[in-house]
Amino acid sequence: MATTYSNANRPGLGTKIGKGFMWVWLILGLVPLVFMFITSIKPEGIANATPPRWFFTPTFDNFANVLAGGQGTSQGFGRLLLNSAVVSLGATALTILLAVPAAYALSMRSFAARQKISGWILSTYMFPPIVAVIPIFVFAGQLELMDTFAVLIIPYAAFNLPVAIWILRSTIVQIPFEIQEAAMVDGANHWGTLRQVIWPLLVPSVATVSVLTIVLTWNEFLFALSLTRSGAKTAPVGLQEFTGMFGTDWGSITAAATLVVVPILILTIVLRQKMVSGLTFGAVK
């Protein structure tokens, strides 16, 4: 779009204040991230020095220490990152596997209940995870699923399904119906149409949904905190125990924090155009 929002020919005082406010917000907003990164590359002993040290020889010792699980850690942080990756990718794969056929069904014009069911699926977004965590805690205990990847992967997939199904359904509906019809006339059944006609056109949306699901599941805390002990513990939960374990060794803590955040920041920047659209179920383009 070539139009600019403000069509003023000269920037007034209000515009300048607005712009100033925006940049102050953005720069102040970076302070926690700058703190995290700078502290993670400080050499041993000066990480929490007061006054804060701004000039030092950067080192990656903290990262090496954290990943190796040195200094009284029972598990290397690398293991926790690996757990996070397994849970995140597993939940994403499951989400896609469930959401693609569901979205296809909800786009079929011959399916009379599609609007009502789509509406119900959307409404499950408001379901608070804290309400689900107690029953899942109880049943996971009885089924001996506690501290497994499955006990995280299945709820994570469930909580990401509403967004996934809505985004994919919207894409399928926008595919000209004649294309599907042609495939049907040529003798393809629904499965064939989905695989050969719809799937190739759906790949970009599947990519969006995947990245969104990876980010949200990687960041999840409540379920991981309540349902894992050690075997499937994820990085955000393990990080909290660092505070006890390393005391005031801020170098190690911030190095671990950086390791958690960096992959997500990269994915978010890659997907930035689609991020807001995805999180609003496609209501904001």
């Binding site: 953005l26 907003g29 970076l30 926690p32 991230l33 703190f35 995290m36 980010v215 990687w218 960041n219 805390f221 955000p236 939960v237 990080l239 909290q240 505070t243 803590i253 911030t254 924090a257 958690v260 955040v261 997500i264 920041l265 994915l267 978010t268 920047i269 930035r272 991020m275």
Partner: peptide
């Protein structure tokens, strides 16, 4: 830049 804080893992942001 606006999007950065929004992507940070909430548990990490809280700890920082």
């Amino acid at each position: 830049l606006m999007l950065l804080p929004f992507a940070v893992t909430p548990a990490v942001a809280a700890m920082v």
